[in-house]
Design a protein around this nucleic acid. Structure first.
Lengths: 247, 247
DNA sequence: GCTTCTCAATCACCTAGATTAGAAGGGCCG
DNA sequence: CGGCCCTTCTAATCTAGGTGATTGAGAAGC
């Protein structure tokens, strides 16, 4: 099943087998994309959305001077541009970090899905609002944490999200972000990202382990430095949601 | 009509009279709130959402040390916590800046509305994604602009949003944010917010005009300093959306 | 074999913004 | 009326992070 990871760790148990099958059957085709390619461009009229099956995708806003700000990272189980269903054009670009496999679903099909399965429709809505919750947490991090804390927060979030979809092995972060990418996500320069990684290394929090990946040595420390509380991911913790069905 | 400003300047023209009436009739009651009070608390189970009729509301995340990060400002025409419809609990707090009037709509009623008017449902979804788009723009600002630029960006956004709902008179920003609030939105200290306001004043961009309001003297300059391009508000510009009806 | 890239890593120096501490002005309350 | 907040505004000092430049390792290409 292509969409097996959709809302895994959150509301997937709340979807009926019929709904899960309907979502999976809505996929028109899958596409492969090479690393560091653009998938969806800001401003282009779009008529389908992509669900990420495998790989990592990055969402970013570029300013006139060519400076790039990451606004999101997507991992398997995420829709990368479901916003486009209700907005028709994206305000930012979506590109690949690694080689990636995506499942394409047309907006017409999504409308049919929602008409046939209103509860699934709410789950789709929910999934776009998870993005918004993550955005808010990034705003918090950019506004209130120093460079080291921002990087730690990002790493802690990625670990937690991978854990929810059972793609975290407990020690290696399988997302080959470059220090430049961390810098673009955290609003700092690559030089300073490097300095921050050094202190994280010296504190024994993590260390590089080849191919751009990080070995996580002390997750608790990383969470503390990033003031991370994962409840905003709505998987576990005080905000966790059991059902979207009306009481 | 209480909800007359909902999606005004964006998709309101796309709503039928029937849909507009249905939304208005879904309002259970209106509530008044005094300035600087909390309306919705993070983590509380909620069963209705609030549409802002009059006044200004602020949304913020507080960290353990009592530091506050604004993550959104709401003006008339906005739902302040429609996210809560699909998420049941908010990850942040919503409070008033000024005295405010809100229309309360139960989640049960929203479900009925969406069932009866799927297109209105998509418009409601769209409105929550506008929040996400604004969040992304704030992330961009926090990551890529200096203090003066961040403040300018926020002011430019507020002007543009007020203009969309026709609440901007062309010279006075009718939102009495304190310098402390700007600081909490922009991730800087109040002292530095003050310095930045001084340079904005010295450049002839704006000046205070009593009761915490700002007189806008050179909007073009403010937009330039904040690298502001309002198309992410989906009102005018390259991303503007004409209809949510299927083609 | 060489060159050419890219990325991590580091240094020296400089600036934007934080921190701390007050002063001045207005509104509200007793 | 005096006293007390709260807010704006300012100055002095300090630091996190930016800038620019260099080095070395590894991979890609010729």
């Amino acid at each position: 099943m292509l969409t097996a990871l959709f809302l895994k760790g959150r509301l997937r148990h709340d979807l009926s087998e019929e709904e899960r099958n309907a979502l999976d059957n809505a996929v028109a085709r899958t596409v492969e994309i090479r690393p560091r390619m653009t998938l969806v461009e800001r401003g282009k009229l779009i008529e389908h959305s992509y669900y990420l099956v495998e790989g990592t995708m990055l969402r970013h806003i570029d300013d006139r001077r060519g400076e790039r700000q990451l606004v999101g990272v997507n991992i398997p189980g995420d829709f990368v541009d479901l916003h486009g269903y209700a907005m028709k054009r994206l305000d930012h670009d979506v590109g690949s970090l690694t080689r990636a496999t995506l499942a394409q679903i047309s907006h017409r099909k999504i409308t049919e899905l929602i008409d046939a399965f209103p509860h699934l429709g709410r789950a789709l809505w929910f999934s776009t609002l998870l993005d918004a919750a993550m955005h808010r947490e990034w705003i918090f991090g950019l506004g209130r944490l120093n460079a080291e804390g921002r990087i730690a927060h990002l790493i802690a979030e990625l670990i937690e999200r991978l854990r929810l979809v059972e793609l975290y092995d407990g020690s290696v972060l399988p997302i080959p972000l470059l220090q430049r990418d961390y810098a673009e996500a955290c609003g700092i320069t690559p030089v300073h990202a490097n300095r921050s990684f050094r202190t994280l290394r010296e504190r024994g929090a993590l260390r590089p382990c080849g191919e751009g990946r990080l070995e996580i040595l002390d997750e608790a420390l990383i969470r503390r430095l990033g003031e991370f509380d994962g409840s905003y991911l709505y998987g576990t913790g005080e905000l966790a949601l059991r059902t979207l069905h009306d009481r």
